[in-house]
Amino acid sequence: MAKYSLSVNGKKFDVDVLPDTPLLWVLRDSIGLTGTKFGCGVAQCGACTVHLNGTAVRACTLPVSAVGTKEVTTIEGLSADGSNPVQQAWIEEDVAQCGYCQAGQIMTTVSLLRKNPNPSDEEIHAALGGHICRCGTYTRIKKAVKLAARKGGKI
């Protein structure tokens, strides 16, 4: 076991875990932030996507020992009330079916739009192609990404 001090959603958390524990399980099992989801464990589905210093990463394959002092943002930290324009676009387009993958999809979209406020279809595909929505909400995800881009605001 090893002790780590993590900065998650602007708060400090001290955890004592196995050094190879993926950040996903530290968030979910040690810190209690269950909004970040487990889907595959091999960085293939994107359900576990969080931000590390603002960049979308797969928490299921990122060992906690590699996080260091970087700021972790999870879906719970994106906004207190769902007011981020990407979250709002997801509601407006009524994207979710089962909803399980959507936190990850939203985290990647936020990261995308911060770097590229007006992505083309190809750029949306490239960014979100690493995600799986088993319910097949892709057409609405595309609409929501475009809506968020169109509306702008502080993403």
């Binding site: 970040t36 719970e76 906004s79 009330d81 509601i91 009524d94 979710a96 909803g99 959507q102 939203i106």
Partner: peptide
């Protein structure tokens, strides 16, 4: 709209 939309997009 889905009654759980807000909970879904906020991870709750």
């Amino acid at each position: 709209k889905n009654v759980d939309n807000l909970n879904i997009v906020t991870g709750k």
